[in-house]
């Protein structure tokens, strides 16, 4: 543990536009896990109209309704800070609408209006054959290569097609995700996933992975919380009856 706490800058992007499903929980989780390890997290809640910080280690983007998503994508394209953040290797983590915004384009609304995204992930989102609403269970290979479950709740109308430059983030056992048996996408330090809200609360290894990416790949001492392990056990049991 450093003697003077090391500052780690976390930016929560457009909370009032992209925070519909408790997505601020991801910022709570990231800052607390930093604090519990002796870092000094500095959280900036960025609202529309304010510029994004240029020097954050970690950028978190949540989900929102259609009109909010379109507004947010336009503002973020004009701002440019997320593209620069990805170039310099900061962690950029988006869920739900935030994931779609990180891609090349997405369609929302009754008229399937196409909106350009940030192009940080090689994915394209169009209206799916059905709305994806419910628990999602996936498997990713953690930073150490060990297989780990992803558990979360998804609620989105768009399904996502990966281009040749997009690695899926995880395979999907229960739920819809991208719609092709995978969920999310990853490109360097940029990660997008469908399960919204406090996804990082249910998936502490993923939370630590995002933090580690923001700190240039640094290894973090483990944190042990039996309640989080119990929550993961319960959610897995809920979506895998009889197993």
């Amino acid at each position: 543990m450093p003697s003077t706490p090391e500052k780690v800058h976390v930016a929560l992007v457009y909370q009032s536009l992209l925070g519909i499903y408790g997505d601020r929980g991801n910022a709570t989780v990231v800052t607390k896990r930093l604090q519990w390890r002796g870092f000094e997290p500095v959280l900036t809640v960025v609202e529309p109209g304010d510029p994004l910080p240029q020097d954050a280690h970690i950028y978190l983007i949540g989900g929102g309704e259609d009109a909010a998503q379109i507004s947010a994508a336009r503002l973020l394209r004009a701002d440019g800070a997320l593209q620069r953040a990805a170039e310099r290797g900061a962690a950029v983590f988006g869920v739900c609408a935030g994931y779609q915004i990180l891609g090349r384009s997405f369609t929302v609304g009754e008229h399937d209006q196409v909106t350009e995204g940030l192009g940080l992930l090689d994915v394209t989102t169009t209206r799916g054959p059905q709305r994806a609403v419910g628990e999602l269970l996936g498997t990713w290979s953690g930073a150490d290569g060990e297989a780990r479950h992803i558990t979360g709740f998804e609620n989105h109308g768009g399904w996502t097609t990966r281009g040749p430059d997009a690695e899926p983030f995880c395979t999907v056992e229960v739920g819809i995700g991208n719609g092709d048996g995978t969920d999310g996408a990853v490109n360097g330090t940029v990660i997008g996933l469908y399960p919204h809200g406090p996804l990082l609360a249910r998936n502490p290894a993923l939370a630590d992975h995002v933090i580690s990416l923001g700190l240039g790949g640094r290894e973090l001492p483990p944190l042990d919380h039996p309640e989080i392990a119990e929550l993961r056990r319960q959610r897995l049991a809920a979506v895998r009856p009889g197993r």
Binding site: G19, G25, G134, F153, H196, G197, P198, A201
Partner: peptide, 9 residues
Amino acid sequence: GRDVSWLWD
């Protein structure tokens, strides 16, 4: 509501 994400708001 089947989704308890709101707990974080």
